[in-house]
Computed example of a mutant assay.
Amino acid sequence: MKQLERLKTAMLQQLLANQRFPKVRFNDFKDSWKDYRLGEVFDEFSVKSKRENEYKLLSSTTSGMESRSGRVSGHSNIGYKVIDNGDIVLSPQNLWLGNINLNNMGKGIVSPSYHTFKIVNANPIFVNFQLKTEKMLFEYKMVSVQGASVVRRNLDMDAFKKIVIKIPNEKEQIKIASLFSSISNIINNHQNKLTQLSTLKKYLLQKMFI
């Protein structure tokens, strides 16, 4: 599994090396990649919930989107932001740590402190694979100002929207997105099997020493 993760990372670095003509790409494509500012790709929106627990409560973390079901915040969630599959969610305080995600957990609500976006002019899955590369984490850090704590930084949204990414034509985006989605699915399946084996091992050990 670690070999697959390293392969995925290496391929992403080769493809997204800030070049108009990547060294590694599918043979079918020869056109140059074009520069887009994030402000041209991310269309910010804010739709607020109108009822308590109108949709499931979600949270964006550096590890991905998570369900907050069962957690008690002690506050009403009326007025939380409504998101759907394919929407981008980011934490302005923790973006520099990689807290930016493509929602894949269906319709839900997130804290109003998050910024939420629709992807335009690009394939959402293709864009998603660029969001946490080393280059992008460096860019996020450059547009985030030290806040009240070491961990939290304040995002300069205007500067964030000026970050440049390179995007190929639509067909190449779809093919790249499909490739990396397949690799991610294989990695996730292996991880799930390891988790199941670990759970089985604990169960058997408990039964053996009762």
Rank of each mutant, 00 (worst) to 15 (best):
K162N: 13
V82F: 01
W96E: 01
F129K: 09
Y80P: 11
S144I: 04
V89F: 01
L131N: 03
Y140S: 04
F126H: 08
Y114G: 02
N103D: 13
I88A: 02
D158I: 15
Y140L: 03
N103S: 15
N85G: 15
R153A: 12
V164W: 03
L102H: 09
L95F: 07
K162F: 04
A148D: 15
V143M: 10
K107A: 11
L97S: 09
A159P: 03
K135W: 10
E139F: 08
V120Q: 14
N99V: 00
K141E: 11
S144L: 03
N121I: 07
V89P: 02
N154W: 05
I88S: 05
I163S: 05
I163H: 08
Y114N: 04
E134Y: 06
N154T: 14
I109T: 13
V110T: 15
N99L: 00
N123P: 00
L137F: 06
P124Y: 10
L131K: 04
Q146N: 12
G108K: 11
M105A: 10
V164K: 15
W96R: 01
Y80Q: 10
N101M: 01
V127D: 01
I165Y: 04
D87R: 04
Y140I: 03
I167H: 08
L102G: 05
M142T: 15
N121L: 15
K118A: 08
E139P: 00
N85P: 15
Q130S: 04
G98Q: 13
T116D: 04
Y140R: 05
I119V: 14
V82N: 11
R152F: 05
Y80I: 12
N154E: 14
I163F: 08
V127Q: 00
E139Y: 03
K141A: 11
N128P: 00
N101Q: 08
S149T: 11
R152C: 00
S91V: 06
V164E: 09
K107G: 12
T133A: 12
Y114S: 03
K132L: 13
V82T: 07
I167R: 07
V150E: 14
N103K: 14
E134D: 12
K166H: 05
G86E: 08
K107Q: 14
S91F: 09
T133N: 09
G86C: 08
L155S: 10
L102A: 07
S91L: 05
W96Y: 07
F126L: 10
S113N: 12
M105E: 10
M105V: 07
K161F: 05
R152W: 00
L131G: 03
I165G: 08
I125P: 00
A159W: 01
I100H: 10
S144T: 07
N128F: 15
K81H: 03
I167G: 12
N103Y: 07
A148N: 14
D84A: 11
A122W: 09
K132G: 10
K161A: 11
G108I: 11
N123A: 11
K166E: 08
K161N: 11
F160D: 02
K118P: 02
P124C: 13
I119N: 05
K132D: 10
Q146W: 01
I163V: 02
N104L: 13
D84F: 02
Q146F: 08
P92N: 09
I167N: 09
L155C: 09
G86D: 07
K118E: 10
S144G: 02
V82M: 13
L97P: 01
V120H: 14
E134W: 06
S113I: 15
